[in-house]
């Protein structure tokens, strides 16, 4: 479980996160959604400590993360995996070297054990034939999959994903979404995903937090989101044709609101 209490973050006097309190549950795919510039990435980076919050506290299970110094945070960070928007693979390292790096730095395993784990993780993300390739030789989807493999190689308890679908075609996006959801369930990880992809929201969002102008505006599940009585959220959600269709299907199936469905 990860919990944020009243976190505030400003840059050059401009408040980006304004008194946000939220709890993300273990074993669930938690989504942070919102328009571009709403503060999603700052929120995610604040949760992992890449940005220091101005005030408020962040808890990883029962440990107060904000009170820890760099050394103490290292212990928690070894349990954190993160998938960055662009993958953030080390350009000078091959796929195998990228995935193996955390094992090299933080375990005393033999080379065979490490390679076994690396191969397992690469197989897990369906990437069997790219071991010796460099990031510049990979497609966008492959980069994301290597990033996932690297993020899970140390069996993390917390997984953070910053717009894992950005720049991917819809089919690959679904593959990546399903992969993250499966890994979350398989290893009972607390997963937090930043996204504005409505497909992800409706497919894998077990808990959804909507950020609007730096404030937590709404939270609920993917089932609640289509019927939420919240103008800003509805504007965001129903800007997507897919969400409109999803609501139409739901209301038509419901049988009672056929007339309303046509209006959406």
């Amino acid at each position: 479980m990860i919990k944020a209490e009243h976190i505030v973050k400003s840059f050059d006097g401009r408040t980006v996160l304004d008194d946000i309190s939220v709890e993300f549950d273990a074993g669930q795919t938690n989504l942070i959604i919102g328009r571009s510039g709403s503060g999603k990435t700052v929120m995610l980076k604040s949760l992992v400590g890449l940005h220091e919050v101005d005030s408020g506290t962040i808890y990883y299970d029962d440990v107060c993360f904000t009170d820890l110094d760099f050394k103490a945070r290292k212990r928690i960070r070894k349990n954190v995996g993160m998938i960055f928007q662009g993958g953030a693979l080390l350009d000078s390292s091959t796929v195998v070297e990228n995935v193996k790096l955390p094992l090299d730095l933080f375990t005393n395993q033999s080379e065979e054990e490490k390679m076994e784990r690396v191969n397992f993780c690469l197989r897990r993300v369906n990437l069997d034939n790219a071991h010796k390739l460099y990031p510049s030789e990979l497609s966008g989807g492959m980069i994301k999959r290597v990033a996932i493999a690297r993020a899970i190689v140390l069996n993390p308890r917390y997984l953070f994903c910053d717009e894992p679908n950005s720049g991917l075609d819809p089919q690959t996006s679904i593959v990546i979404d399903n992969l993250i959801r499966d890994i979350t369930e398989e290893y009972n990880i607390t997963t937090i995903i930043n996204t504005h992809d409505m497909n992800s929201v409706l497919e894998i969002g077990e808990k959804i937090v909507f950020i609007y102008q730096g404030r937590k505006w709404w939270e609920g599940s993917k089932h609640d989101i289509l019927h939420a009585d919240n103008r800003e959220l509805n504007e965001f959600v129903f800007a997507s044709a897919m969400a409109k269709r999803a609501k139409m299907v739901e209301t038509t199936e419901d049988g009672h609101n056929g007339r309303r469905a046509k209006q959406v």
Binding site: L50, K74, V80, G81, F84, Q85, G86, L89, L105
Partner: peptide, 13 residues
Amino acid sequence: ITEQIDALEIMGV
């Protein structure tokens, strides 16, 4: 700028 340094920091490096 491509967040590779952030990725290292997240790993605890």
